[in-house]
Design a protein around this nucleic acid. Sequence first.
DNA 1: TTACTTGCAAAACGTTTGCAAGTGC
DNA 2: GCACTTGCAAACGTTTTGCAAGTAA
Lengths: 146, 146
Amino acid sequence: MKDGGAFIEFLKGKGLRLTLEREAILGEVFATKGEHFDPEELHIALRQKEANVSRASVYRTIPLLIEAGIIEEVERVDKHAHYELTYGREHHDHMLCLGCGKVIEFLSHEMEELQDRICREHGFTGETHTLEIKGYCKKCAKNKNG
Amino acid sequence: MKDGGAFIEFLKGKGLRLTLEREAILGEVFATKGEHFDPEELHIALRQKEANVSRASVYRTIPLLIEAGIIEEVERVDKHAHYELTYGREHHDHMLCLGCGKVIEFLSHEMEELQDRICREHGFTGETHTLEIKGYCKKCAKNKNG
DNA sequence: TTACTTGCAAAACGTTTGCAAGTGC
DNA sequence: GCACTTGCAAACGTTTTGCAAGTAA
């Protein structure tokens, strides 16, 4: 885990405590290295590392991690939320393959600029955005037409 | 309700039946005129019009309306899904005001073209996309800084 | 010591489903 | 008449919460 310090500072600033459970969760979140995860996966990973962290604590810690700017909610698949580590990473958007489920991350400064301009034209102060393109990756598009 | 015919054709084509319940739901969906709604709101609106349609039927009809190209899922707020009538309307994206909850719709052909280009660069065949910008509308931004 | 935090188990929430009765076609 | 469709109520899976015990500071 690198840069977990940001979360620790966040807790201090709010008068919240750094517990073993929160440390374990934070460590596990950084261990995802940016891969998407859901609360249940996080909980299972923690159990496998014999970290005794309850599901409730996982659910209670996630909003704190979001508020601290460590993770973001990416998208809701089926019924449950998915998250990703964003701390220290540049903003990016996602393509989701409907064939194999693969997630392709991409970033485009042109896109960011265009959005800024559109916001300005609407008198809107944009803070965050999410763009998701659904379709088919190269491999799945080929199989589909072949 | 205008153009509900598309749904009726869809049902016919699938060997499904046009029931009073489905007609009532369809009518109520067109009555939203493009405003976002969730299944519960739809169900309440139907009850108020003394249309005896159960919650189960609302939930069972929504996937049919999506498949028929009448509505689309817009975004999940909290735990539940929101939808909007898209049939006969041009594709657009959304700005969501974090202050007052207002939804601003916008469309940009430049954005569409840029996305096409990005997809091409990644060998990805884009089918649909959703872009949501969160921030503050003119009024809320002013109140925030004033 | 004091308030925050935990685990548990139960509750809450939106959504789905099995079933028997009803109904388009 | 046959299958599709309905309403009901129970089930489902995810997330939240009340509570008493535990613990960081």
